[in-house]
Design a protein around this nucleic acid. Structure first.
Lengths: 171, 171
DNA sequence: ATTTGACAGTTCAATTTTAGAACTGTATGA
DNA sequence: TCATACAGTTCTAAAATTGAACTGTCAAAT
């Protein structure tokens, strides 16, 4: 599959993955949320090759996740700043961090703690239902086709048509 | 950088990315949450090469995200089922979907709608503070080093030591 | 009894990506 | 004039991914 096809899939998750779903991009975004703004800053914080960094930044700008803003003339220099679209990635970042905090810490404990300014306490992020406010878990959620779903008639695999398959016992 | 180094970084996000931070893995997990369990199921839904699929599944099992469970003898066949650790990825998945729903839909609207069984309504996921219940945004959160933070003395870039750098005006 | 097909992989050459390192070019400060 | 900051670009070698074919067990159909 070509990765730019991902963005055309009738699946919001696939589309998101098409934009931010690779390791370097995610790490670059981590740095953005930690207030890194400049090429050298990203490069030395991450150890990413300059080539890839340039490419990833360009893509994020194209996608509207970052904005490239001049901070000095001669020589022209730019900073990479999160747009609102980029800032909206925050729940994804926090969800990634929280899973790591829960399942990947060593005996020493969490590398970072998060303080919520409004209430002043150290917190964990919790995902709740926008309608009733209750915490969500996979089993309590039912999925329905939405208006942008692909008609059942053209259900195909992610790239080419799935080979026609009969089923013996499989559902 | 070698990707298995990521899991040893003193950063929960990097560690999580080390486990699930590549495109195919994320798509495989999407299928898991949509109740796909078998090799052929993943393969035909995603169009991933069999080689990579086998590798990714193996890695997810090694990491404890999936469990490989026999569902028939002769020939031995197994299903891949989310463990609790895997189920706990749900907020990440929902956060990815929700960002796509918000920023990547076309004129036709969302491909999928989510119904919360408890309250019966179509919902969006909202990330809130575990302490005060208020919705979170990046700007209201302060980060502090936790017990597992790396001592400042050995602050280095993600792979090799950062080259010593002076700073002129950079922060 | 033989053929067909489901299923879950494994193998291998060709292609694409990524890593690592050096190089380009403008400008500042010593 | 020389060294350094900064933001890239260019190049080759190494690693990952694709695409396609192949392996092997078993069940059902002919």
């Amino acid at each position: 599959m070509k990765w730019d096809q991902l963005e055309e899939e009738p699946c919001s998750m696939a589309r998101t993955i098409g934009v931010i779903g690779d390791r370097w991009t995610l790490l670059i975004l981590r740095e953005c949320f930690l207030r890194t703004r400049r090429f050298e800053g990203f490069q030395s914080a991450l150890g990413i090759t300059r080539h890839l960094l340039a490419e990833r930044l360009k893509k994020l700008v194209r996608q509207g996740v970052l904005r490239r803003i001049p901070y000095q003339e001669s020589p022209k220099r730019h900073e990479y700043i999160l747009t609102q679209k980029g800032l909206d990635l925050y729940p994804i970042m926090m969800a990634l961090v929280h899973w790591g905090d829960t399942h990947m810490v060593d005996e020493r404990g969490r590398p970072l703690l998060h303080e919520h300014r409004k209430c002043g306490k150290m917190f964990d992020p919790v995902m709740v239902c926008s309608e009733c406010g209750e915490p969500l878990s996979a089993k309590e959620v039912h999925v329905h086709p939405g208006p942008g779903a692909r008609p059942a008639s053209e259900k195909v695999s992610l790239d080419k048509k799935a080979k026609p398959k009969s089923r013996r016992q499989a559902a």
